[in-house]
């Protein structure tokens, strides 16, 4: 089963990076490890990555997904026009964003709405486990169903 999953995801490429001037590297390092372990090809752009760098890497590596991390509270301004830049470069990928997306995260539903409107397919808070993001991406890329899904189907 593990072997099968790896086969299915072998060709799926994920571009990761921390957007803007943010230098928080720990989360992205752990995401890189988690997605690699889950069988994805990972291109980690690291911290302080510009919108243009995300777009170029997505094109160069024919990315299936672009995962944006932001932890310093300025995500909204850093992501203005991001999807237009991706589109202009011809990127057709699932886009996720996660982290501390607003300075005062009192109402995460409002934050989620904001970033959904900016064009992201999924929005995660900083408490999200990497497993959850992997699970979501498997669904969105229609990779082989996970154990829990099959359990649901068969029950």
């Amino acid at each position: 089963m593990v072997f099968l999953m790896v086969l299915h995801t072998m060709s799926q490429t994920v571009v990761l990076g921390v957007i803007g001037s943010d230098a928080h590297v720990v989360g992205i390092t752990i995401l890189e490890q988690a997605f690699s372990a889950a069988g994805f090809d990972v291109v980690n752009l690291g911290v302080q990555t510009s919108q243009q760098e995300f777009a170029e890497a997505a094109v160069d590596h024919d990315a299936d997904a672009v995962l944006v991390s932001s932890l310093y509270g300025h995500a909204e301004q850093d992501c203005q026009g991001f999807h237009q830049v991706l589109e202009a470069a011809g990127v057709d990928a699932v886009t996720y964003i996660g982290g501390n997306l607003a300075v005062g995260q009192d109402d995460f539903e409002q934050t989620r709405k904001t970033f959904r409107e900016l064009g992201f397919d999924r929005v995660f808070d900083s408490e999200t486990d990497s497993e959850e993001a992997i699970e979501a991406l498997r669904q969105d890329l229609q990779i082989t169903p996970t154990e829990s899904e099959r359990a649901t189907i068969s029950s």
């Binding site: 230098a23 928080h24 590297v25 720990v26 390092t29 690291g46």
Partner: peptide
């Protein structure tokens, strides 16, 4: 150095 954001270090050690 682990978790190094800099391009000057590999940041590959964990």
């Amino acid at each position: 150095v682990p978790f190094a954001p800099s391009d000057s270090a590999k940041g590959a050690v964990l």
